[in-house]
Simulated assay, not measured.
Amino acid sequence: MQWVVTLAVVVVGALTIRPMGFSGRGSAVAVLFVINAVALLARRLPEHKVSPRLAVVWLTLGIVAAAALIGVSSSGTGYLFAFFLAGHIGYRLETRPALVLAGICSLLCAAVLWFRLGPGHEQLPWTFGLTTGTPVLIGIVNRTQRRAVRAAIEAAESAERAARAEARTAVLTERGRIARDVHDVLAHSLAGINMQLELADALIDTGDLEKVKAAHDRAHSLVKESLKQAQWTVHALREDALPLLESLTAMLESSGHRGVLTVNGTVREEPPQVTQNLLRIAQEALTNAGRHAPGGAVAAELAFAAASTTLRIRNSPATRAVTAGVGSGMGLIGMRERVALLGGTVSAGPVTEGPHQGGWQVEAEIPR
Rank of each mutant, 00 (worst) to 15 (best):
M1H: 13
L7V: 10
A8D: 07
L15M: 14
T16C: 09
S23D: 15
A28Q: 10
A30D: 06
V31P: 01
F33C: 05
N36H: 12
A37C: 12
V38Q: 05
A39D: 01
L41A: 15
A42V: 03
R43Q: 13
P46A: 09
K49S: 13
V50Q: 00
W58L: 10
L59K: 02
L61E: 01
V64T: 11
S73W: 08
T77W: 10
Y79M: 10
F81T: 05
L85W: 02
R92K: 15
L99H: 06
V100C: 11
V100Q: 08
L101N: 03
S106G: 12
L107W: 06
A111M: 10
A111R: 04
V112A: 06
G118K: 05
H121E: 10
L124S: 06
W126K: 01
W126T: 03
T127V: 12
L130R: 01
T132S: 09
T132P: 04
L137C: 12
G139R: 02
I140L: 15
R147N: 14
R150M: 12
E157K: 13
A159N: 13
A163P: 05
A163M: 11
R164C: 07
R168P: 00
T169S: 15
A170G: 07
G176H: 07
G176R: 02
D181P: 00
A187T: 14
H188D: 14
S189W: 02
L190I: 15
M195Y: 05
L197R: 07
A202L: 13
I204G: 01
T206I: 06
D208S: 06
V212E: 03
A215P: 00
D217F: 05
H220Q: 09
K228P: 00
Q229W: 02
A230K: 06
Q231P: 01
L237M: 15
R238P: 05
R238W: 11
P243W: 09
S247K: 01
T249V: 07
A250M: 01
L261Q: 04
V263D: 08
G265E: 04
R268D: 04
T287K: 06
N288Q: 09
N288H: 13
R291T: 10
H292T: 07
G296C: 10
A306Y: 09
S308F: 07
T309C: 13
T310C: 07
S316M: 02
A318C: 12
R320W: 11
G325L: 13
G329Q: 07
R336C: 03
R338P: 00
A340W: 06
G343M: 11
T345E: 10
T352M: 11
T352E: 13
G354V: 01
G359V: 01
G359N: 00
W360D: 02
A364G: 07
